[in-house]
Amino acid sequence: MPDTQLEQNIPYAIRAYSPEQLTDALRKMFLIRKFEEGAEDSYTRGLIHGTMHLSIGQEASAVGSCMSLTDEDKITSTHRGHGHCVAKNADLGKMFAEFFGKETGYCKGRGGSMHIADPAKGNLGANGIVGGGLPIAVGAALSAKRLGTGAVTICFFGDGANNEGAFHESLNIASVWKLPVVFVCENNKYGMSTSTERSTAVRNIADRAVAYSMPGRTVDGNDFSAVTEAVDAAVARARRGEGPSLIENLTYRWRGHSKSDRNRYRTKEEISDWMGRDPIVSMSRLLVDHGILTNDGVAALETEAEQVIKDAIEFAAASPYPKVEEVTRDVYTVQEAAE
């Protein structure tokens, strides 16, 4: 029998997951980081059209929240959603191909950065509308309950969405109908340039859970284990049929809101302070400290991630563009209606 006292001092993630699962989690965090850097680099080279919203610095929230999900479980994501896709096992080549506007991309070049989805893996898609995914996640939870699939939906959204009507309507409906959905707010302190202090009446967004009679918890979103502990408990609760929860992961985006952001609303000191709390460094240390990986093993994961991203970009670059004459394809399932 393990010593209960000692057990309490070991972080939740180490207790809950196998070394292989934890190594895989760190691999995904590296993949997200390298993916975002690769996307940024491709953007700089003019290979990517439009804009993109990078999640560098938020990797622990994305990967940690999805630890207890299977492919049957659903997520809805946000405009800052690349990390969620990776956490939900997306194919990185198809992601890059989408960024490059290629026919082989997840959305066949029709969606771009803000609309990556992978229904087969339970990823119902990122969303270009702040708060757009919240009611949809509740609908997915309604389906799961009605069809008895046992699936749970994690609804990712940012601090900006918590002031949208859709947030309040969705939490209320989910609670009234006791639906298996976990609302995960990735509070990275700014909705574009407007800080939560200036936009949100409550101190913690999780405080709003009280209004909808559901549990609310605020955790350090850069601490993989803390995120996992809070979200896993909420997922388990949802699976038991006890209804929704609201988890707030406090985190920070290192980059600007989008590629057009000049960072006029925050200080260099604040940014470098948060960069000092790199979730990947923390996760690496956690795994090394508990003898799950060596420093070399961590370095090898990083090198491996770089290679995966390189291959993905090569696949995307070599892929064909969509045909212009097919631009109205997929507006309807039966195509005559698009005439």
């Binding site: 009611p135 609908g139 997915a140 939870a141 309604l142 969705s170 209320n172 409906i173 109908w177």
Partner: peptide
């Protein structure tokens, strides 16, 4: 369970219907 009174939440209700339609209902 099948004839569901929604709260007076048109946006939320409509979105729930969208999500439900996307996932099998």
């Amino acid at each position: 369970d099948r004839v569901m009174d929604t709260p007076i939440s048109e946006l939320g209700g409509a979105g729930v219907a969208v999500g439900a339609a996307l996932t099998g209902l």
